[in-house]
Simulated assay, not measured.
Amino acid sequence: MKKYLHTGILIVILLLSGFLLWRHSVQTRVSHEVVRVADVGAIAWVPFQVGLEKGFFADEGLSISIVSVQTGDESLKALLSNSVDISLAGIIPYSFVALDHPEIQVLALNTFAKDNQIIARKDSGVSRPEDLIGKKIGYSKTTASDIGVEFFLKNHGITKGQVTLIPMKPFAMPVALATGEIDAYSSWEPNIINGKKLLDTRAILFNDVLSTYTWHGSLMANKTYIESHHSSVLAFLRAWKKSAQFTKDNPTEAIAIASAYTKIPAEALKQIWSRYDFVANPSPEEVVSILRTDLLWANLHRANPLATIPDPVTLLANINESKI
């Protein structure tokens, strides 16, 4: 009799322990930490939206609060003002910020986007790059659009003095082009597709190798935040890694999510999908090289260039890769 009693008590204890562990697990999953993220809404950031849709961030115990911005420059300004915890931005806008704020660090360089191009109006007399001489070109300062237009002009033998560069927000570019305020503009997707959709047959796109600038999408955060919320940062990076791999392995579903995210038809996205490497995994040496190149360019194009740029190695966050 005692044997059965002891067995019964043991079973009750095991069941109770299992229940308590299950309840703790549920409570842990429910009490998500909020991470505020500045999102540009570019196609390069589709893995972010995929992660939200598929629940990868929630699975890591994170609740994402999105702050929508138009450019990487705005994304980083939100980070500097402590309006967000993590910034999605390209290395070019980051470089302008890092020159004065080395406490803003790179968490990961994770997307290579071959999509900054030039779109122009045919009825402005533009049918080839050289026709842009004497024309007005819209661009967004301190972004991929900025270095992208310089890349385009240099490759086609056009000097900056031969065109009029008009600074403007990316979302304003398609309408400005359609109304004749500008004759062309330099930008990334989905801003190029939006321009083509608005102009239809009046649009001409320069998308060859000499006209397409490849920019590098990255995640940034303040060093203080990284140190004080290290577990959350690791969780965010783990979720992003899953999202990026899912985006690569499931293009049809990822494109459907991207279509809802960017308001661009899935068929249009299919045509440009190969321009993106969502699981770019450059070596530390490559990251340092990219950072150094873009820091030098940013320093050359700022009002008061520094005598020396920060060491790119010091701008990389101290992340334990084995935990991602």
Rank of each mutant, 00 (worst) to 15 (best):
T159W: 05
L205Y: 08
Y139L: 11
S83H: 13
A260W: 11
N304S: 15
E321H: 11
L88A: 04
I91H: 09
V34A: 13
D277S: 15
E74Y: 01
A58T: 01
I192K: 01
I91S: 11
N194T: 09
L296N: 12
L107I: 11
I133D: 00
L177N: 04
W45Y: 15
G161P: 09
K77E: 11
I272N: 00
V97R: 01
K323L: 11
K270G: 05
F112M: 12
D249R: 03
A113S: 13
T262I: 12
N155F: 04
T224M: 09
W45N: 06
T159D: 14
L177H: 05
T143S: 06
I158S: 05
V40Q: 15
L205K: 05
P312N: 06
P129K: 01
G125K: 07
A178T: 03
F56S: 00
S81I: 14
G72P: 00
I264L: 09
P47I: 00
E267G: 06
A303P: 03
G61E: 01
T7E: 09
T293P: 08
D59G: 10
F152P: 05
S283W: 11
N116Q: 12
A303K: 07
K54L: 04
F236Q: 03
L315S: 11
I43A: 02
D115A: 03
D73V: 02
P47C: 02
A266F: 09
E227H: 13
H301R: 11
A280H: 05
S232H: 05
A89K: 02
K196F: 08
S81M: 14
E227F: 03
V46Q: 00
R29H: 14
S31E: 10
I119F: 06
R202H: 08
W22T: 15
A172Q: 14
T214G: 10
M1R: 10
A244C: 13
R36A: 11
E253Q: 07
N207H: 07
V279I: 15
P251M: 05
S231Y: 07
E130T: 15
F151C: 00
P129W: 04
H6S: 15
N110Y: 13
G61Q: 00
L107V: 11
